[in-house]
Write a protein that binds this DNA or RNA. Structure first.
Lengths: 168, 168
DNA sequence: GACTGATATGTAAGTCTTGACATGTCAAGT
DNA sequence: ACTTGACATGTCAAGACTTACATATCAGTC
């Protein structure tokens, strides 16, 4: 068993939560409801589904309209998903370009730093709008609340930082 | 110019902020002060420094004790860093295993979900301790405040979620 | 003098992820 | 009939990242 396999877990989780789906459907979910949690494009999803089918975690139906293939989670896949969810220890891997900009803010002049933080704030606000458009109910409920809270925290940080920079 | 090159930026930023340093020094910085912003191990850092030297962004001193090489940022490297800091548009690439667990929480029984959220909360609290040990001043000041705020938000989310699950 | 642990640098294999390219279907409007 | 746009699947090369392996120095201590 591999250590990193969150793409698999995300795919298994979606199949478990929303029922059988095609690679295209799953890619759409990543773009919309899973966007603030995990990101993956179709170029990563299609090959992964093939591998997962080979490993017996999902089953593919015969082709439908437009070559569409519907994947269904198998009992083995459900078991693997459940084990991961219950046993996975949280690891904080952070790789955040915005935080990197924030880290290096002292290397800029006050004016430049203010412009950068304002851009970051605008980005967070746009993000807030995107997340606000998602339904508050449904499977992603808890993660959406977390995502919204994190974005609001980012906006607050930007406001505090702007105030600190302006009074410098 | 490549789209993704945050490792380079992080290395250039550290060299600019703390002055000349060896690969080992930089790896330590990633482990400690940059930990909540960007992560990279020495196996990624050493080859990247070689490439950056080839590209003229850093200059390597001749070897010191224990084969130690000291890298210094060049004017060209400083220019590249400055451009990135000022011009980089924020992109929100999220790949968060904890948020994935949160997303899929509804697939678990209430008891299992409570156990998972408690583990997540403990993880955030440990994280808070780690971040709390860092100096509040210095280059990473702004990013540290952001990191602390994000972790506190995570703890709050866990508490709210636990309350919601327990009253279910 | 031998051992231990922190210092210090590297390579190689394999996995994960992105971006560019490639192909073809179906529905709706003109 | 033709065109357009959304639907749908895929490959490939390159880049980013991890894990395991490999090596050697230096300081302190037993």
């Amino acid at each position: 068993m591999l250590a990193r396999m969150s793409l698999r877990i995300a795919l298994l989780g979606l199949l478990e939560a929303v029922g059988p789906a095609s690679g295209y459907d799953l890619a759409k979910k990543f773009e919309h409801s899973l966007n603030h949690v995990w990101q993956a494009g179709h170029t990563q999803i299609y090959p992964e589904l093939v591998k997962m089918a080979a490993d017996g975690l999902v089953a593919a139906s015969s082709e439908g309209a437009r070559g569409r293939k519907i994947y269904t989670i198998t009992p083995e896949g459900a078991r693997e998903l459940h084990t991961w969810l219950v046993e996975h220890e949280p690891v904080f891997v952070v790789r955040n370009e915005t935080a990197l900009q924030a880290f290096l803010l002292p290397l800029l002049s006050t004016e430049e730093a203010i412009a950068v933080v304002e851009r970051i704030k605008t980005g967070y606000e746009a993000r807030l709008v995107v997340l606000g458009c998602q339904r508050e109910d449904g499977t992603g409920h808890y993660a959406l609340r977390l995502g919204l809270a994190q974005v609001r925290t980012g906006i607050e940080w930007a406001e505090e930082t702007l105030a600190a920079l302006r009074s410098r």
